[in-house]
Simulated scan of single mutants.
Amino acid sequence: MSREAPRPVTEETEEDVRQLHAEGCSRNEIARRLQRSGRTISVIAQRLGLSFDRTATEEATRARMADLAERRAILAEALQDDAERLTEQMWEPSVIYNFGGKDNDYNERDVPEPPADAKRALMSTAAQAIDRSLKLCPPESDQQGLAAVDAWLRGMMSD
């Protein structure tokens, strides 16, 4: 794989950078228009005594972080809902089934609630959902409550 030789930075390139900067273009926009790397544009701008306003970038970053926090909160709520549905299933009527015998027959039976192994699996899965929910959106001020819930979850999973 061959690399092209770097293009030299000419006075024309510097003038283009100066002009686009004066028009309010960002560093990345100038790089795109001139088909240069952002680093090259930064070096040219520094040499010309130009700087780029980072206010818009900082505001965009803050907005993005707020959006991500909101998405984590929504996901944490969905995980909490899942955990609640799973724990409710532990006490609802269930069907147990198996395949067996020489003909590999299918058999099922209705039971008033799931057997112990199914309850253990439901509780473990619910505990994982709660744990993930708490990691996505931990309580802000109740660290003792968080520790208690964590201990409860670990106890439920070890049973």
Rank of each mutant, 00 (worst) to 15 (best):
K102S: 08
S124Y: 01
E84R: 12
R71G: 05
A66P: 02
D150K: 14
K119P: 00
A76I: 07
I96N: 01
P138E: 09
F52K: 02
A63I: 08
D67L: 11
E92G: 11
E88W: 09
R109Q: 12
S124E: 03
A116T: 02
A78L: 14
L136T: 11
A83D: 07
Y106M: 12
Q89L: 15
S42T: 11
A126T: 05
L79I: 12
D105P: 01
L146W: 04
R62S: 03
Q128T: 14
A56S: 08
E88G: 10
V111A: 01
F52N: 03
T125M: 04
L136F: 10
E88T: 12
A56R: 09
T87A: 09
K102D: 12
R54I: 05
C137K: 14
G101M: 05
W152P: 03
I44E: 04
L50W: 05
A127P: 13
P138C: 11
K119A: 00
P112Y: 00
L48K: 10
F52L: 04
D105V: 13
K135I: 07
A129V: 08
A69H: 11
G101R: 06
G101Y: 03
E92F: 05
D81W: 04
I96Q: 03
T87H: 08
G100D: 10
Q89C: 13
E58D: 08
L79P: 11
G100E: 09
R132S: 14
I74S: 10
D82M: 07
D110E: 02
Q143Y: 07
G49E: 06
S141C: 13
A83K: 07
A126L: 04
T61L: 09
W91T: 07
M90F: 01
D67M: 08
W152V: 08
T61Y: 02
E113K: 09
Q80T: 14
G49N: 04
R109L: 10
